[in-house]
Computed example of a mutant assay.
Amino acid sequence: MITLIDSHSHFDDDSFSADREAVLARAQSVGVIRQIVPAISAGLWYRLREVCKQYSGLYPAYGLHPLYLPEHRQQHLDQLAQWIEQEQPVAVGECGLDYWVADLDKSEQERFFIAQLHLAREAHLPVIIHARRSVEDVIKQVRQIPGSYGVVHSFAGSEVQARQLIERGFYLSFGGPITYPRANKLRRLVQTLPLENILLETDSPDQPLSTHRGERNEPAYLLEVLQTVAELRQQSPVEVATMTNRNTITLFNLSL
């Protein structure tokens, strides 16, 4: 059986509270044996930590997501520094910039993002970046902080932007959106970018695949993401799984 790592899953989300063990069992039954679980706000760090402790194969990352900007406070950045030191997460995140939601203050988003880039660099950790309609500004910020590295999850930028990020040591992650036949730009990217810089994700419970429209997404569906990538690239699923697993292990410094 092919084994896989979901590089971006919000497995601590409330939507899994009623059947979390069954969701995990379904994932493991199809080979999804490990998950990177990024945080979204300080108030949920405790729950995320406990979920990752309770179940094997879950690796926490702590950060402040731009969509939850109204919840973030300056002291949360100080707390994040403490959590990073005490908990030794695999990454800082989810952090970044979101320009799709009009009423989120861009300058405040930028301030929290830059602060988290600095924290990650100081801790020698990768960042997990959310970049929605903001890839150019994300590139601008990581350029200004030498030594920044990580992954832009659910990447939706251009090929030029993708290659700029790759040159700076970033990986790009793809999930459910590439399974939609009309997602031509994304599907071309998956075909043309070096496999050495690609990760696979579900972003569970969000971004359902084309075969699960309107449903809760879950880590077990990563197998379908793998199959789509393999078909688009005309490579075997084993080859794609082997390389993307290696990429994920390298980026997050996971033990084998």
Rank of each mutant, 00 (worst) to 15 (best):
M1L: 12
T3G: 05
H8Y: 09
D13F: 15
D13K: 12
S17D: 15
R20H: 00
L24G: 00
L24T: 07
A25W: 00
A27H: 01
Q28C: 00
V30F: 13
V30P: 12
V30T: 12
G31Q: 12
I33L: 14
R34F: 00
V37S: 11
I40V: 15
S41C: 05
G43N: 05
L44M: 09
Y46L: 07
Y46G: 10
R47L: 02
R47Y: 03
L48N: 10
K53N: 07
K53R: 14
Y55P: 09
P60H: 06
A61R: 02
A61W: 04
L64F: 11
H65T: 12
H65W: 10
P66E: 12
Y68K: 08
L69N: 07
P70V: 13
Q74S: 13
L80W: 01
L80V: 02
I84G: 00
I84D: 01
E85Q: 13
E85I: 02
Q86A: 10
V90K: 08
A91L: 03
G93P: 04
C95Y: 01
G96Q: 01
L97F: 02
V101I: 14
V101Y: 15
D105K: 08
D105F: 12
F112M: 03
I114Y: 10
A115G: 04
A115Y: 06
Q116S: 03
A120V: 00
R121W: 01
H124L: 00
L125E: 04
L125S: 08
V127T: 15
I129K: 07
I129N: 06
R132D: 06
R132F: 03
R133D: 15
S134C: 05
V135C: 09
I139M: 09
Q141L: 10
Q144P: 10
P146M: 06
S148F: 05
S148Q: 10
Y149Q: 14
V151S: 07
V152F: 02
S154C: 10
G157V: 08
S158Q: 03
V160N: 06
V160C: 09
Q161D: 05
A162M: 10
R163D: 04
R163L: 14
R163M: 11
L165V: 05
G169L: 04
Y171V: 00
L172T: 10
P177A: 14
I178H: 14
T179S: 04
R182E: 12
A183C: 02
L186Q: 11
R187K: 08
T192S: 14
L193D: 12
L195T: 04
L195I: 09
E196F: 01
I198Q: 04
T202C: 07
D203H: 02
L209I: 13
T211P: 02
H212S: 15
H212C: 07
N217H: 11
N217S: 13
P219R: 13
P219A: 13
P219K: 09
L222S: 15
L223P: 06
Q227P: 05
V240I: 14
N245L: 03
R246H: 08
N247P: 09
T250D: 09
T250K: 13
L254M: 08
S255N: 14
